[in-house]
Every structure is written in C-alpha cells, then in structure tokens.
Design a protein around this nucleic acid. Structure first.
Lengths: 110, 110
DNA sequence: CGATCATTTCAACTATTATAGAAATATCGA
DNA sequence: TCGATATTTCTATAATAGTTGAAATGATCG
C-alpha cells in the first residue's frame, strides 16, 4: 500500500456518511449490506449513497457483488489491516516499533 | 474520540502534503521540526505549509511550541493511538476482536 | 416481452479545499 | 530601537467535494 493509496483510503473514510457506512459494513460482516439498505440506514438519497460508496470501493475498502436485484457491499478487512499497517510501520524511524508483530496479533476480521 | 473528531483526524491525514508532513514529524520524534524546515522538505510555500499544519494541529494530531524564532511541531502519539483504537474498536460488532489488548501491546511511541 | 425494482449516471448548484503572493505579527541579535 | 528572520493571516483564484432530482441502466418476475 503506497502513499497515494493511503491518501485515497483516508479520504474515503474522512466523511461522516462514509465513515458511518463503512462501520455499518464492518459490523454487518462478510455478508454485507445492500446499497438501498445502507441509504435507508444513513437517511441519505440513493444517489448520494452511490456517490459515497463508490469512493469506498475505489479506495479498496469495500467489495461489491450482486445478489438478485440488489448489490451487496462488504468491508474488506485486509485493506483495513494494510491501512493500519502503513500508519504504524514508518513510525519512530522504523527502528523501535514492531508493526509486523502488531498486525499478526490482530484478529483476522480486523 | 468521537466520530466527528475521527473524521477531522482522517481528513487531516488524507492529503499528500499533510500525510508526508505528519510522517516526517513521526520520524522526527518528540523534538519535532520547525515549520520552515517542513516547508523546505515538502517543497511547498511557507503559507501553504502553515495552512496544512494548522489542520493537523486542529485535528489534534500534532502539537506546537515555540523555540526562539521558530515554531516546532511534533506528532502527538496519543492522538494516533486513539485514532487507531477507534478504527478497530467497533469492528465485528464489538464481540470478537480485542482492541484493548491491541492498543496495550503497541509501543508507547506509536 | 413488458412492468417493476434497485442502483448508477448525469446535470446543476453550493460549499469547501488548495494554492501562491503580499501584508501583518512576533522574536531575536546588533 | 532597528533590521533581519520565521511564521501566520489575508486576499483572490482555481479545483474538488457534496447534494438533490431526473434520466438511464441492469436484473428479476409475471
């Protein structure tokens, strides 16, 4: 995960509706949630949800798949791990901290 | 750290120059770096640096103190810890993961 | 196939963000 | 105090982001 991907991921999460949507998806687990359900839960217009969720998807933070007429979105836990790794791996000049250990100890789901 | 503070922190980091500045400060350690030094390292105008660093400071990610004519900025590791904690603490419905353990195992510097 | 449902794309507008240069503020050294 | 240095604030401008409603796309069901 390079700097520009990290900026995109951080920017994707740096908005009320998108952070809320992402957290709903994280809680929803691997099954994910339909776009319409998300829009309803967040109380925003379907087109707004589409606009925001596209940014989360573009940043690689969520995946999408079709199920009948609905499109289900789900959090990508691996991307979250990579983001967290990047934010820690370069700290303290790289010497003192042990980011690899840290990530390894993180449960697979997040 | 509430949702709006997290959005502010993520937004502060979600920009090339600011992410680069923040990482320089993280590497610089507690002594920090002068505003002018940062502007020079990032190759941006002093006024631009001032604009960006103010957002990092407003988000609570960096601290500032005066040293002679210079103003030294330093990364606030506690804020970084809080941000990381928020991003993990609500995952998996709160049941499966062990974020408290995770944070505790993180070295104090990051 | 035609009607319906779910989602995305488009268009138009408003608000926020990023940029650079000039002016203002604050500190230090002579 | 005066001049030099460091940083911030102000001003103006260009670019990006967020919102809504309408139209278009894609998939299902009768």
């Amino acid at each position: 995960m390079n700097s520009s991907a990290v900026v995109r991921a951080l920017g994707a999460l740096a908005q009320d509706h998108r952070l809320a949507a992402y957290r709903l998806l994280v809680q929803a687990g691997p099954d994910g949630m339909a776009a319409g359900t998300l829009a309803e839960a967040l109380e925003i217009a379907p087109s707004s949800l589409s606009f925001h969720i596209a940014q989360l998807a573009n940043a690689g933070l969520v995946t999408q798949r079709r199920n009948g007429r609905s499109i289900l979105y789900a959090a990508d836990y691996a991307a979250m791990n990579a983001l967290m790794g990047f934010l820690t791996e370069n700290c303290c000049g790289g010497g003192v901290c042990a980011p690899a250990e840290l990530v390894r100890q993180t449960p697979e789901c997040c």
